[in-house]
């Protein structure tokens, strides 16, 4: 039914990085992106029969929609389980915000299929390489380069000094390049 190149396993890196980028820092401490991605892959395998037209573009979009729902559920569940009148309204806003972000993200892919194919390949390559980085390094690389956060913000979010964030970035980027080049 599906060739190896379209095996869902190939998308693990992509989904993990995506999930990490979407979960805010507070949640990342509580919820493991890897668990969510595992759920997504299980659901994807179960529903694979529904997927008729297989190419990287459709698979990616489909996986992403599963991930979106999974993330939205997780975020809601997490906040609901910590019900607190005073805090509820506060975190409720954040849930709305995250959900709005997710929705935008789900609809973000607007490129034509032909254009997207090569992009998707590059995206898989990039995210796969990111996945091999140690978690703390990956976190700052994703924050800096995929979420476009500023050094100061990363330092606040991760409780590190700006210099140590820069150090992680420096090492992460070097490692990333090494991996990408060795894969070629």
């Amino acid at each position: 039914m599906k060739s190896d190149s379209l095996s869902f396993e190939n998308y693990r890196g992509y989904l993990t990085v995506m999930a990490e980028a979407q979960l805010d820092e507070r949640l990342q401490a509580k919820v493991s992106a890897e668990d969510i991605v595992q759920q997504v892959l299980v659901k994807a395998e179960a529903g694979a029969a529904e997927l008729r037209d297989l190419n990287t573009g459709t698979v990616m979009a489909w996986l992403r929609s599963i991930l979106t729902h999974e993330l939205a559920d997780t975020i809601k569940y997490f906040y609901r389980s910590r019900r607190n009148v005073a805090r509820e309204v506060n975190v409720g806003n954040d849930v709305d915000q995250s959900a709005a972000g997710l929705e935008a993200w789900l609809n973000a892919d607007i490129t034509s299929p032909s254009q997207a194919a090569s992009r998707n390949e590059e995206m898989l390559r990039l995210t796969k390489a990111l996945l091999t980085l140690p978690e703390d390094v990956r976190q700052v690389v994703v924050m800096k380069h995929l979420k476009n956060m500023q050094l100061r913000e990363i330092s606040e979010a991760t409780n590190r000094s700006v210099a140590s964030v820069a150090g992680l970035l420096r090492r992460g980027l070097a490692k990333l390049r090494q991996i990408l080049e060795s894969n070629n």
Binding site: M18, L102, A104, W105, D109
Partner: peptide
């Protein structure tokens, strides 16, 4: 377009 524009 996939990450940055939409990251919360």
């Amino acid at each position: 377009s996939t990450f940055i524009a939409t990251a919360p």
